[in-house]
Design a protein around this nucleic acid. Sequence first.
DNA 1: TACAGTCGGGG
DNA 2: GTGTACGACTGTA
Length: 766
Amino acid sequence: MSVRLRGWLLDLYEDIDNGLRIWFISEDGTRVCLHQAMEVTFYASGTNEELRSLWITLKRYPAVLSLQRETRRDAFIPEPITVLKAVVDSPLHQARLFRELQQRYPRLVYYDADISSNIRHAARYGTFPMAFCEVDYDETGLILSIRVLNSRWDLAPVHPVFRILTLEPNCDPGRGEPSALRVQCGQRKQTLLLESSGELIHKLNQVLKQVDPDFILSSWGDTWLVPTLLEFSKREGEKLCLNRDEKRDVGWQKEMSYFSYGQIICRAEEAHLFGRCHIDQRSAMMWRDYGLDGVLESARVTTLPIENAARVSPGSGISAMQMLTALEHDILVPWHKQQVEVFKDGMDLIQRDRGGLIYQPIVGLHANVAQVDFISMYPAIIIKGNISPEVPLPNGIIPASEELGVVPLTLKPLYEKRVALKLRSAGLVKDSRLSKRDNARASALKWLLVVCFGFLGYKNARFGRIEAHEAVTNGGREVLLRAKEVAESLGFEVLHMYVDALWLKKPGSSKKADFQEVLNEISLQTGLGVSLDGIYRWIAFLPSRMDERVPVANRYFGVFQDGSMKVRGIEARRRDTPPWITETQTKMLERLSRAGSVQDLPACMEKAFEVFRNALSDLRSGRVPLEKLVIASRVSHELESYRSPTPAARAASQLLEQTGKRARPGQKVRFIYTRGEPGVHPWELPGTIDPDDVDRVKYIELLARAAASVFHPFGISDDQLKQWAHTQSVALDLVLNKEVSHVRKVYHHARTGRVEAATGIRRIAG
DNA sequence: TACAGTCGGGG
DNA sequence: GTGTACGACTGTA
C-alpha cells in the first residue's frame, strides 16, 4: 500500500546505514522524513589491462551491482574513449569503494566518482531544495516514486511557512564572555542564562521541541555557540536535541584555510544539522548581502543543500551546477582536473593575461556624464560565443560550434533568470515593485554569474581551461572597443572605460532620452545587452596618489541625477579603513551630493569641509568612541614567517603572546593604532585601551588622506590638507576660499561656453 | 628607495 | 574546499 505526499523538499542527506534520508514540509504543514535507495554510477578509463584488473576486483564486491564496458566522451579528449561503467548500490558504498580504488589503481582516470548525493539526485529526479514534490511511499517510509512539480527557474517560487528560531549570545564572544542567550521565534522572545545550572539545556530542549524549527539562525553558532552549548550539555548530562533527525549528532565540518580571491581565507568550523538547517549569520558567506531569500535562491539554482549554500562561496555553487549540467547531458565529469595547457608561442604569450580592457580616465570633474554598462558582460559573451572548455574556441564572439558546451548550458538559464528578475524589478513587467526579496535573489544570482567566468580560468575547476578564460576577456575587449567606436561616431566623448562599462558625455546631452540612441546602437553593433547605469550630475575621476599626473582606472565618485552617489576605490570603500574615517568621508561626500547641479558645488564643498573640521575636533577632544577607530586587516601568513610584519601581524603577535590565541592565515585581526612601541594594540586583548594612548597623529593623517581624496578634484592638494589637519592653522581656510571662488568662476565660464583653465584645478568641463 | 603585504572590482 | 590577473597603495627596512 502506498501513501502520497505533496510538499517541499527541505533537506536531503546520506543515511548512516545506506541510501538517502529526505525531509519534506508537506502541504498541511507536517514535517516528514522519508528514505530512498539510490544507485550510483561511476566510470574509469585506462589501458585494457588495467581495466580488466579493475573488473576482476570490482566483481568481488557485493555492493557493485553491474559492470559494463562502454564508449564515452571525455570533454577534453576529441576521440571517444573506452570506460568501465560500475553501478554501486548506495552512495556510501560508492564513496568507500572509490577511496580504495584510488589507492589501488592510482593510474586510472575516474569519472562521476566524487559527486555529492544532492547533485546525483538532482540529475536523476530534478530535485532541489524547496522543490515542490509529489511523493509516493510505503508504510516504512520508503520512497517509491518522486516527481518534481516546479522548477529551479521559477521567477516567483512559492515557499511553505517556515519556522525560524533565532539564537544569539548577548555579546560578541570574541570580545567578552556572554552571560545570556537570546532566543527568538516570531514575536516570542526569551532570554536564558548561559550558566550550567542544569536548567539551560532542559529549557532549550523544550523550546526546540515546542517550535520544531526548520531554520536555526544563530550568531557565532559555528565557532562558539554550538560548541559551548554542547559543552554545557555534557556537563549537565542532558542531551541537547538540535537535530530533527534524532539518530544524528551535530555534523562538524573542520576549520580550514584555503586560497581564494587572491588571498588566504580561513573558514571556521561549521555545525551542520540534519532535518533542519543551522545558519550562522556571522560566518555565512554574503549573508549580509542577501539574507535567507538569497540563500534559498542560491540553493535552488545550485541544488546545494541550504546549509552549504549559505556558507560556501559561489564558486562551489557554480561547480555543482556544471556537474549537474554534465550529468544531464551525458558528459563525463572528470574527477581531478587533468587538463594541461597547450604550448604557446611568443605571440600568444603577449596576447595572454591582459584581462579586461582598462582605459585611463580623463582625470577631473565632469558634468552630465552617462555610465553605460553591459549587462553581465562576461556571462553574455560566454553564452553568445559558446565558450566552454570542451568546445572549439570562437573567433571573437562568433561561435565556432552550434552545440552549446557545459559552461554556456549552465549559464544560460541563470543569465536569463537574472535578466527577467531585473526586468521585473525595473517595472518593465507590470505588477511588481522592486521588492526586497527580488533584490536578494538577483544578488545571489549575480554572484554565481560573476564567479562562473573566473572559474573558467581556475586551474582546479573541473570545467576550466585557461584558453577559454582568455577567449572571454578577448571578447570583452573587442566589445568595449566596438562600443567606443560607436559612441564616438555619434559625437560622444568617451571619458573612461572599465571592463564592462563606458562613461560618455556630449555637450547638450543630459537627459535619459539624449543617450537612448547611443545605447541602442551599442547594443545593436555588439549584439549584447546594455543598460544606462545612470547619468551623473557630476563625476570626479581621481589620479594616482603616488603621482598625480597618472590617471587610475578605478578611483572616482559622482552623484547621479536622483541624488544617489557612486563611490569607487577610495578609502570609504576599503574594508581596512576604520569606521570613523569611512563615516566621515561618506558624510563629506554626502554633503557634496546635495549639490543640485555643478553650480551649487562650491557651497557644498564648504559644508563638506566643516564635516572634516568637526571630525578632527571630535578626535582631539576624545569624543570618538574607540570602536570607531578599530582597523580590521587580514593576516595571510603564519605570524613567524613575516619578513616585514604588517601592523595587523604585529597586533596578532601581541595577542598570541598575551592570550595564547593565534590568528591563523586568513583571519582578520582588529587593532587600534597607539602611541609609542609597538604602535598597535589588539582590539581583542582583554582590558581596556586608555583613550590617551590612541595615536591621534596617525588618525589625523588617515583622515586627512581620506579628505584629500574628496577635495582633490577641487584643487586642494594632499599636502595642504595634511598640514592644515595637523596644525589647524587658518591657512587652509584661505586656500579653500580661494579655491571655492575658482570653482565658481570656472563653472560660470563653462556654462557661458568660455571654458578656461584655472590654476590648481585639474580639469573642469561642462 | 625597494620590497612585502593587503585590498579592490565585478555588482 | 577552492575564481582570475593586476595595479594602487601603505608600511617597513
